[in-house]
């Protein structure tokens, strides 16, 4: 259903891209100039890492300490890339360019699709719509400082949570997926107070995948059916209801 893929991807793109305004405003109030705020959004383009960099600078940390924190948080994009690679199968310059939009939302939207064409479409539309809007809104936020209102007033933070849940929902029809999702959520929640922002997601996801592998390991007699293998190829499981 390409039409729904287009609408869904652009919807997530708008809701997420609007957050750029809060980053731009926060960056300039933390001591960065407008160019530096815009350079971070253009070149780094992964929200949690950008906020972390600005946070370290605001706290009086060294720029390289900010860079280290930022890159550590960006490590989850490595795992997103591994999940996306068999679905997108990008080659050459498409991979070089596409890599820049490997982020939370484009990954979630791509892996939520039924087939490979839809996944590619969702990845591109979500990623690039966020990229364009995120950068424009960063500029607006940086120029306006804190004058522009908080996107939370419009519930945009809750919208992203709702979008992730809507993507997860159709995958919960089998027991291993349910267990893995709940373990991921529980471990991530438990780690929030004790680890730097961004780490709970990657650690929660990693622990949940390990638990999922243990769940299936003892049952050596169960081989994946051809259909399951095909779905595995495109990184996809259940169909939407």
């Amino acid at each position: 259903m390409p039409r729904s893929v287009v609408a869904d991807s652009l919807g997530v793109g708008v809701a997420t891209g609007a957050y750029g305004v809060s980053f731009g405003a926060l960056a300039t109030t933390s001591g960065l100039d407008v160019w530096q705020a815009c350079a971070l959004s253009l070149l780094v383009f992964t929200g949690a890492s950008q906020f972390a960099f600005v946070g370290v600078i605001a706290a009086g940390g060294a720029p390289l300490a900010g860079a280290a924190t930022s890159i550590l948080l960006g490590s989850r994009n490595l795992f997103y890339g591994i999940g996306l690679a068999p679905v997108l199968r990008l080659r050459g310059w498409r991979r070089v360019v596409g890599a820049q939009i490997v982020i939370d939302e484009s990954t979630a939207m791509a892996l939520g699709q039924r087939d490979r064409d839809d996944a590619r479409l969702a990845f591109r539309l979500t990623g690039w719509s966020i990229f364009v809007l995120w950068n424009l809104m960063t500029l607006a936020g940086a120029l306006a400082g804190t004058a522009i209102g908080d996107p939370r007033t419009f519930g945009l933070d809750a919208a992203v949570g709702g979008a992730f849940l809507a993507l997860l929902w159709p995958r919960l029809t089998a027991v291993p997926q349910r267990v893995v999702a709940v373990v991921g959520a529980a471990v991530a929640t438990g780690l929030v107070p004790f680890t730097a922002a961004g780490l709970p997601i990657i650690l929660g996801g990693a622990v949940a995948v390990c638990v999922g592998l243990l769940l299936r390991a003892p049952d050596a007699s169960h081989r994946a059916t051809p259909a399951e293998r095909a779905e595995g190829q495109v990184g996809r499981k259940e169909e939407r209801p």
């Binding site: 989850r76 795992f79 997103y80 591994i82 999940g83 068999p86 939370d104 990954t107 979630a108 892996l111 939520g112 933070d157 809750a158 992203v160 949570g161 992730f164 849940l165 993507l167 997860l168 995958r171 919960l172 291993p176 997926q177 349910r178 893995v180 999702a181 709940v182 373990v183 991921g184 959520a185 529980a186 471990v187 991530a188 929640t189 929030v192 922002a197 709970p200 997601i201 990657i202 929660g204 996801g205 990693a206 949940a208 995948v209 999922g212 592998l213 299936r216 994946a224 293998r229 779905e231 595995g232 190829q233 990184g235 996809r236 499981k237």
Partner: peptide, 23 residues
């Protein structure tokens, strides 16, 4: 790799939702 790739989406989505909503 294929088993891991199959488990990554629900694992990360679960973690993303929790952090997005509670942190």
């Amino acid at each position: 790799t294929q088993r891991v790739a199959l488990l990554i989406p629900p694992a990360l989505l679960g973690a993303l939702i929790a952090v997005q909503v509670l942190a």
